[in-house]
Design a binder for these strands. Sequence first.
DNA 1: CTCCTGGCTTCAGAAGAGTGAAGTTACCCA
DNA 2: TGGGTAACTTCACTCTTCTGAAGCCAGGAG
Lengths: 181, 181
Amino acid sequence: MGMTLTGALEDRSTWSATGWCPVEKAVEIIGSRPAMLIMREAFYGTTRFDDFVERVGVAPATAASHLRTLVAAGLLERHVYQEPGARRREEYRLTDAGTDLLPVVLGLFQWGRKHTSTNPPISFTHTGCDEPVGVAVQCDAGHRVGLAEITATTVLPSVREPVPPPEHSAPAPRPRPASAG
Amino acid sequence: MGMTLTGALEDRSTWSATGWCPVEKAVEIIGSRPAMLIMREAFYGTTRFDDFVERVGVAPATAASHLRTLVAAGLLERHVYQEPGARRREEYRLTDAGTDLLPVVLGLFQWGRKHTSTNPPISFTHTGCDEPVGVAVQCDAGHRVGLAEITATTVLPSVREPVPPPEHSAPAPRPRPASAG
DNA sequence: CTCCTGGCTTCAGAAGAGTGAAGTTACCCA
DNA sequence: TGGGTAACTTCACTCTTCTGAAGCCAGGAG
C-alpha cells in the first residue's frame, strides 16, 4: 500500500507536497469538467469555439473562460487563418504541451471504462499495427512497474516546506502520534 | 492534429461523446483539486483522516465529503483496525480501482513537472532497476504511440446521440473548414 | 471520572463557477 | 444596404463548493 519512501521522505511528519507538487499545478489548469472535456475534444480534432461549446455541453461563457485559461497555460494556441474567399476564422490548436496531456486523458478514459458503468462504442488502436492503445507505467528500461515497485527519492537533503528559521524558541514541533511508518 | 477518426466517426457533425464517455465519469469523481490530491496522498501512503486534512490542505468537511465520494466510487475503502492495547482506528486504503488511477496521477505529475514552473525535489524510480518511472502511451505490441498514430474506430454502426429525426427541412449542414483528417 | 485524541458533523457565510439570454463586433456575400 | 455567421462578451442570477469555528461521540489513559 503506497509507494516506497526512502531517506528523508520516510517520515511523513517532516515534509508535505504542498507548494511544489506538479500534480497541484496541473489540477489547477485541467482539474475541472469543462477543461478536461475541452482537451478531450481537442484530441478528437475539434478546433472551433462553437464546436467546443456544443460538444462539451457548456455555456459559451464557460467555454470562453476555460479556453482562455488553456491558451494562457500553453495547452492550446489561438490561430487565425483565412481560406481564400472565406472570412477570417480562428481555431484552437493543440500545442506540444497540450499534446503531452494525452497520457492523462487516455488514462482517464481507460480508468473510466474499466471502473465506471460506461461502455464506450469507440476504441483506439495503433494506426500501424492495429493493436489497442493504452497507457502504462513503466521505467526507462522498459519494465512495467506497479505501485509497490516505485521508490520515491529526494534530491535535496530535506523536502521540508520553507518555514521560519527555528533560531529562537521552537514553537513546539507538533508531536505526531505513532507516525512512524 | 488530433487523432484519426475512421468510418462513422469521420463526420463530427453526426456524433458526440456526451453521455457515454468514460472521461466524463472519471472527471466527475476525481476532477477536482481535493479529490485528486487525496488520491496523490493515498499513493504516498496516507491513510488517516487528519493526515489527509493536513497534507491536502483542506477543511475537514471538504475532506470528509470527498473521501465519502471516493469510497462510494470504489477508489478507497474504509477499514477499521485495532492494534493490541490501542483504541479502534479507521483508515482509508487504496483499492484495486484506486491503484488503477496511478497512470493518471503520475501522468499529471509528469506533465506538471515538464510544463509548469514546478521543480519537485522528489523523483520516482523502479525499485528493481533504479531507472526513472513514467507513463507512456503504447499499443499492446509494445510500440510507443503518438497522437497522430492513433486511430479511433466505432464498434457500433453509429455513435449518433438520440436526436429528433431530421425529417423536416434540414438546417443547412455547416460547411466544415478543412476538417478532413 | 475527567482528559485527550481520532474522526468526524454541523452551521452560517463567502466565494466561485456555471447558466440562459441577449448583445457586440468583424467580415463576407448578395 | 442588409443578412448571416463566427466568436465571443456581458448581465443577472442560481447553484455549488469551500471555509473556519465549533461541537459531538467513542474509547483508552491517567
